[in-house]
Simulated scan of single mutants.
Amino acid sequence: MALHALVMSTLEDDQAVEVVSIPLAGKTSIADHMVIASGRSTRQVASMAAKIAERAKAELGRSVRIEGLPAADWVLIDAQDVIVHLFRPEVRTFYNLEKMWAFDGPSGSTSERRAPPKASAFKDLDPVPDATPFEAASLGTEEAFDDGEDD
């Protein structure tokens, strides 16, 4: 994939720290890859984001969406097939996206011990009896878990 290669080479050229690429195919439909990297400062994070956007437009004719650029603590680049998260190291440690996506090493492999629970583990849980999933999701916390007793 040309976009993924462009992102990876741009981050390498810009000396990004701890670059991780997580394959998302089969895990989600939002993108094919998620790339997570750190910059040493807000200036470096902002510069890396701008360069990825410029190269994607110039070399592939793709426009990307960028969120978080003014503060540049955590910048999200949505390039459709590739989602890029650029962090300052402290912010990256706090959010720990690699763990959230069950990432377990530089190869992009996952392990059972860190993988999220299978959906079947939750099949018997029904926080709102007789509600469709849409109705249950649209209810507020108090309504969704109301036991019928008044406080």
Rank of each mutant, 00 (worst) to 15 (best):
G39P: 03
S21C: 12
P106T: 09
D73R: 15
A2S: 15
A37D: 09
A121H: 13
G39V: 02
V45L: 12
D124Q: 14
A136G: 02
Q44K: 04
Y95L: 04
I77W: 01
G148L: 06
A144V: 00
E90A: 13
L11W: 07
K123Y: 12
E67Y: 11
D124R: 14
Q80V: 14
V75T: 09
A2Q: 15
S109G: 08
V17L: 12
A31W: 01
L76V: 13
S47A: 11
S21I: 07
L60P: 11
A2M: 15
K123I: 11
G148A: 09
T141A: 06
I83P: 03
A50R: 12
D104K: 09
M48F: 07
D130S: 14
H4E: 15
A56C: 09
I52W: 03
S47K: 02
A5N: 15
R114N: 14
G39W: 01
A131K: 00
T28R: 05
E90S: 13
V84G: 07
L69I: 05
A136T: 00
A131L: 02
V128L: 00
P129K: 12
A56F: 03
D146A: 08
A79S: 06
R114M: 12
A102P: 00
P23G: 10
V19G: 02
D32Q: 07
F134S: 12
L24P: 03
L139I: 04
T93W: 03
A119M: 09
F145L: 11
A79L: 01
D14C: 01
D13Y: 05
D32A: 09
A137S: 08
H33I: 15
D151Q: 14
D104N: 12
A46I: 06
K99H: 10
G108S: 04
P127V: 08
